[in-house]
């Protein structure tokens, strides 16, 4: 999962403080692993360095330093490219995909297309495995089948998510 892309995506709806970003991330994606502050600042400084975000302003006051970040044009392009690029089908993909779907919904992009593209990528791999299975011996078949069943499970999840996009959208935007 790419925390940088996720934070960038969260900034797309408007400039936020580092503190706000952490809270929004935790609320939407960090159910099992909340983000450390250190992780936020190190990521933000990397993004700053790459010119994907800029500092919108600094709020002085009690507590730690409070910078307000805003996304740059280059940042938006980067998010766009990331969302469009299907993930390489591999195990435990759902947290990344989930993040992508939510971000797409938050930023008004088509989450359905995102899922369909990912489906196509999964199927592409399945085709390759199916072909290998067809040509191979029994051990090849068994190995390929293992992968195929995992891919199939992911695909089922993709389909289920696709079917519930509307429901998810209202929940995310709430």
């Amino acid at each position: 999962m790419s925390i940088g892309h996720t934070l960038l995506g969260l900034l797309e709806s408007g400039p936020r403080h580092g503190y706000d970003l952490k809270r929004a991330f935790d609320e939407k994606f960090g159910h099992d692993r909340p983000l450390h502050y250190g992780q936020v600042y190190s990521t933000m400084s990397r993004l700053l360095k790459n010119g994907l975000v800029e500092v919108d302003g600094v709020e002085a006051g009690g507590g730690p330093e409070r910078k307000r970040y805003a996304i740059t044009e280059a940042g938006i392009t980067d998010v766009e490219a990331w969302l469009k690029q299907p993930e390489k089908p591999e195990p435990y993909l759902q947290s990344t995909l989930y993040t992508k779907v939510v971000l797409a919904l938050l930023t008004g992009r088509s989450a359905g297309d995102l899922l369909d593209t990912q489906r196509a990528e999964h199927l592409r791999l399945m085709r390759i495995l199916t072909d290998r299975k067809r040509r191979g011996d029994l051990s090849d078949q068994l190995i390929c089948d293992h992968a195929l069943f995992h891919l199939e499970a992911d695909l089922r999840w993709l389909e289920l998510t696709a079917a519930r996009l509307d429901q998810l959208a209202t929940e995310v935007r709430a």
Partner: peptide, 15 residues
């Protein structure tokens, strides 16, 4: 079924 569709060259989705 995706495992069946995997025998194809290409798929189209109807929604």
């Amino acid at each position: 079924e995706t495992r069946v569709a995997a025998y194809s060259d290409r798929e189209i989705t109807v929604r």
